[in-house]
Every structure is written in C-alpha cells, then in structure tokens.
Write a protein that binds this DNA or RNA. Sequence first.
DNA 1: TGAACATATGATAATATATTCATATGAAAA
DNA 2: TTTTCATATGAATATATTATCATATGTTCA
Lengths: 104, 104
Amino acid sequence: MRDREDYMLKGLSEEELLELADLFKMFSDSTRIKILYDLFDGEKNVTEICEDIDMNQSAVSHQLRALKTAKLVKSRREGKSIVYALDDDHVKTIIAMGKEHIEE
Amino acid sequence: MRDREDYMLKGLSEEELLELADLFKMFSDSTRIKILYDLFDGEKNVTEICEDIDMNQSAVSHQLRALKTAKLVKSRREGKSIVYALDDDHVKTIIAMGKEHIEE
DNA sequence: TGAACATATGATAATATATTCATATGAAAA
DNA sequence: TTTTCATATGAATATATTATCATATGTTCA
C-alpha cells in the first residue's frame, strides 16, 4: 500500500472515497432504505415509522441514529414524540436513480 | 410481520425495496466504489484496475463479479485480458449525488 | 505442447453489521 | 409524584461481508 496521504484516484482522496462508501452504506440496508422512503412524503415520529415499515421500535431507533449521524435525517421533539424528516435534497434523487436502475 | 406478499410501502413492494438495498450495497464498499470510479473514464482490464486502486488481483476479481452480477459493469475478453466497463448510465449520477452530499 | 501471463474461484478467517432484549431517559397526564 | 407513553441506548448474539491464500481456468506465444 502506498502512503495513505498521497493516495488519490482522479481527484478524490482515499478519505473522500471512504466517506462516499459510508454514505451509500446508509442506503444499503433494507430497514434504513424503508425509513428514508417512508419519509419521502413528510415528517413522521418514530411510532409511525415503526408501523409503516413494520419493524420494532429498537431496531428503528438504532437505524435512525445511523441516518442522523450521516446527516440524512434530522429530528425535533414534539411533546412526547420525536419527529424525523429527511435532511438532504439528494436523498430523493439517489433513491430515484436506484429505482430507475432496478426497473430496467 | 404481515404477509410478505402484501407488504407495500407507497408503491414499492418488499421485494423491490430489497433490490434497491442490494443495489446500493454495491456502492457501499470502498473497493467497489473505487473500481466504479476508476471506470468513469473508460474501460480497463483487471490488471490496470488493480494498479489504479492499489488492491490485489483476487480481491478486485471478487468485487468485479459482484458488480457484474448487479449489472453495474460489463466485461469482454480481449486476448489474455478481460476488459471491464460501466454498464449503467445511472452509476455516474448516483456517485455524483453522493459526492455532492459529502461536499456540503 | 508447455511455459508464461491474466483472470476467476473456493475456502477460510477476520471483521463488520443488524436485530433483539432489557433497561434507561424524558415528557405528559392523571 | 407516580404512572404511562415515546424514544434511546448498551450488550449480546447471529449473520453477512471482505480480504487473503491457494489453486484452477483460459489464452497466447515460443
């Protein structure tokens, strides 16, 4: 392996490539992609998401945290609930491109 | 869990959602995304790819097979070599969207 | 034909990831 | 201020994924 520092593939550093992979990792799990897709039509609290995608609360919470860390969703408290929403315009585009690919 | 058959999240079936996740899984590994990105500027044989991304031949071959199964790359023989190329127009768009996200 | 080159493949071991369970935290309502 | 509702979190287990090693397959050329 060359030095980590000077590894570059056409303008993208090793670090940026790892970041890219980590980003797409968020879309690579069916629970997470269901959550993202569920949020396409607006914000929802955790309970609603659980019902929509038919997964238990703990699993959903864990994945929501991952999505939030990746800055793909944001959250705010509303009374007892926490409401989640998409936090990136590219999310819809990325998923739409994916849909087009599998529909071919 | 409801019946697998009738589970649907806004027009996408369970099966399509799994397909989507599997597609994005291809972008979620740094070796694979390096390969895809390396093929942005045209076809290359396996040896060239190995050199560009600085990974050993076996690992690259394994990942190329995965990418081919996912219909993201195609290959053809050219003498002793096998030449790989991108096989989907959406690949560039998907990666470009990812780049935009991480650059924010 | 056999040596050299290019790629693919199977098995294994190391690592990463997701779900579940139990429980903690935090807000509201009785 | 205790109970209930909503969400988060840590630990443990189960599963999936990846790189490596050894070797097989296929091609060219002497």
